[in-house]
Amino acid sequence: MSDLLLDVSGLSRTFGDVHAVDDVSFTLAEGGSLGIVGESGSGKTTTARIIVGLDRADAGTVRVHGAEQTGTARGRAARLARARRIQMVFQDPYLSLDPRTSVHDVLRETLRLHFPGTDHAARIRELLDQVGLGTRAADARPRELSGGQRQRVAIARALAVEPAILVLDEAVAALDVSVQAQILNLLADIREQTRVGYLFITHDLGVVRCVTDDVIVMRRGRIVESGATARVLEAPEHPYTQLLLASVPRPGWDPRAIGAARRALAEAESAGAEAGGAKRPAAV
C-alpha cells in the first residue's frame, strides 16, 4: 500500500497529431490539495477528465491508494467503484444539475445508487448541513437557487459518496467574488473535516494561492514547473510561470510589457519546436 492518495505517472493523450497531454506525472498526498494551472489549450482539463475516467489516456497510469484505475471501467460495479474514489465538480452547476430534480432528490438518487438499503434522510440532512444549505433549499429546483447555492449542491452531491479525491474543474470561476469566497472557505472546512484530497484546476493564481499546498503549471500539454505553492508563486523559475504571474492585473501593472514577454516566449518556443518535431497545440 502506498501512502500516496493519487499517483499519476507518464500520462499522455493525443488528439490527431496534437499532444494534448504529454508525459504528465504528479502525486497528491492524503488530504492534500494540488493546483493545476494553465491557460486554454494547456491540457489541464484533459488531464482531469482522464483522472476522473471521462477520457482515456494513450499511455501512463493513474493510481489511487496504489491501485491502478483501469482505462475504461467495464461494467456497472467497476464504474460505481471508481465514482466512490474520485468525484468531480464542474464549472457551471447549472449545466451539471438536472433542472427538473429538486436538491433533495439529486442527493437521494446518488445515495440510492451507491448505498442501497441505508437511511438516506439523515445523510441528506447531514450533507446539506455540511455545505451550508438550509432545509428550504432542499425542496428547490436548480433554477430557484443562486449560482453559489447551486455550486453548494454540486459539492454536496460529490461528497455524498465520500470520495477520496475531489476534482474541482474551475469550480469557482463562474461565481461572484463574495460568493466565491464563501465557497472557497467551505472547501477549506470540508478538507479539514473529511481529509478528502483536492485537485484544483484553475486559471486564477489568487485562488491557487488561497486553497492549494502544491501546484503544477501546465503549458501545451506539459508540466513546465511544479512545487510548493508558496515557492512557485514567490520565486517562479520557468519564464511561462513568470509571465502568468505578471499577467495578474494590479495597480501599477504594465500590460505592454506582458504582451512583449508573451510574444518573446512564443518565438523562443516555436524556434525550439521546429527543432523538436512533434506538433503542439498552437499558441493563442
Binding site: 443562486s146 453559489g148 467574488v177 463574495s178 466565491q180 469566497a181 464563501q182 472557497l184 472557505n185 477549506a188 486564477d204 493564481l205 489568487g206 485562488v207 494561492r209 488561497c210 486553497v211 492549494t212 499546498d213 505553492t229 508558496a230 508563486l233 504571474l245 495578474v248 494590479r250
Partner: peptide, 21 residues
C-alpha cells in the same frame, strides 16, 4: 469586496467572505 478577492498577496487560509445574498 476587496477583502473577499483571493490575491497573490493573501496567504493560504480563509478569505473574508460577505455573508448572505
Amino acid at each position: 469586496l476587496l477583502a473577499s478577492t483571493p490575491s497573490l498577496d493573501t496567504p493560504q487560509g480563509r478569505l473574508t467572505a460577505i455573508d448572505g445574498q
